[in-house]
Design a protein around this nucleic acid. Sequence first.
RNA 1: UGUCCAAUGGUGUAAUGGUAGCACAUCUGACUCUGGAUCAGCCAGUCUAGGUUCGAGUCCUGGUUGGACAACCA
Length: 583
Amino acid sequence: MQETASNEKQLNFLEEIIEQGLSEGKYEAIQTRFPPEPNGYLHIGHAKSICLNFGLAKKYGGKTNLRFDDTNPVKEDTEYVDAIQEDIKWLGFEWASIHYASDYFEQLYKWACVLIEKGLAYVDDQSLDEIRANRGTVTEPGKPSPWRDRSVEENLDLFERMKNGEFEDGSKVLRAKIDMAHPNMQFRDPIMYRILHANHHRTGTKWCIYPMYDYAHGQSDSIEHITHSICTLEFDIHRPLYDWFIEQLGIWPSHQYEFARLNINYTVMSKRKLLQLVKEGYVNGWDDPRMPTICGFRRRGYTPESIRNFCERIGVAKRDNVIDYSLLEFSLREHLNKVAQRRMAVLDPVKVVIDNYPEGQSEMLTAVNNPECEADGTREVPFGRELYIEREDFMEDAPKKYFRMTIGQEVRLRYAYFVTAQSVEKDAEGNITCIHCTYDPATRGGDAPDGRKVKGTIHWVSAQHAVDAEVRMFDRLFATEAPDEAPEGKTFLDNLNPNSLTVLQGCKLEPALASTAISTEENGVKAPVRYQFERMGYFCTDPDSSEGHLVFNRSCRFTLLFLPCSFSWQVKAFCPQVCLWTD
RNA sequence: UGUCCAAUGGUGUAAUGGUAGCACAUCUGACUCUGGAUCAGCCAGUCUAGGUUCGAGUCCUGGUUGGACAACCA
């Protein structure tokens, strides 16, 4: 109890700012916003921002708007608008209202005229290159534009004609008139408007001038009375400009606060790079289960809870950070362990024949659906003379600590019987094609009446009743911890993990899975159905499944198993780090 | 050689001038009809030099290191 009490006092820096403002009466309730640009799909870094913006408002009884920052028509598209809304909903958040920066174009235009009238903005005829050259560098001051001192009347006239489409793209811009020698580059007469004869996803061809981020964002916040405009660190240096526009316009004072963006090792978090992976076919779309996108994690089998818990756990601060991928997987396992029903599935099957089990006989055995949730009940699993077990669960020459099946060692078939391997059949190459066992009928259900114990329990599927499936095994998309750091002449693409996807065919599932739903609805969004395949990890249905052809994705494996000197398919293909460790 | 931001175990994050705590990772052990889960435990930290103070991770100054800013992107 005291623990929780003291934990509640441990606020992050944003909560402190909010609580202080609340107690000082700066605002009655907080208002936040999540402002994505609809130019790509949301990724786990956005999830952090979403959890912050929506979470903070929720915690303090405030509201959160969804606002599309759509001020650059050449990059934006309604496809992204729809996907973004779906992802936010799926994560379990609701916006108070939905807005578009483009809704404010008219107001923004009027305010620009106000600044011109105050002598704080001017139309610049310089070319892109001239503007760039005259901006100076971080250590040298810039040079004023020759057009900097045009009259208010001329500026007003020119700006209106810009709006009316009289000029070509790039021929003129509207600039704030601040200080070309300012040590903060953002203040060297920042561009407010550029001419873009482009079709906008919402306003069509109504406008041919579009506001820049710095001129649009703060004013949009102000219009919506956003009390806390929370953004990432790279905008820190923009804050003085954010404040400047609001102050000069004398409008409702929103304030900006910055936090450090999320980085996770073994992955990239830039929209540009994610787009490249999709466009150039390194992955199969934005929702490829290897992608760090929200829709990718959804298809991978992640739950909204697991992502929210992850975002809670990583905390928020102003220092750069790189989170271990393992923390994400921990959050997933933690949740799935509680909610995922268990099933038996043999991914790399080898045939087992129980020689003393009557031919042609089969029976039903009872298995627990989820030991963590009694309400999930039990199911019946068919058992017969011929079974499949994991190839990895049998070893001819086993070391002492190998508890699974080997000649003469009794093991338990989960929920079924104790069996003992007697002999094997092999093909010409020496591969095991069949294992012959004997079983003890007295151990039905998995316990011996005489109280004898076995060290190992393995999963199995009745050969006669097995359902075939395809299973996609994923490993990390990148082979290196910091994929962005590529040596001279290389790019992040050179850091891709060539073994990030392995497709297994002919996997054998217990028949209960034949009737599984392929998808379910979660927070109003279509999501996969998730299972734990006993001893193998967490898996979920993939939408590529069709009638008679089930496809499962591996969401994550369990924490690394102890695999003494075994060099099986599993180790080789999916646990390169284990190979090193057991070598 | 400018302006701004930041430095706490391997990785994150608390401690708000008063015992440096928590989580993940790693390792050990216990238990188990999943080598899962669970439980217990180990290892490990305040960038540096001064200053203020009875007392500094916290305040001040210098240094060091890392990051952001020179798109008509956001």
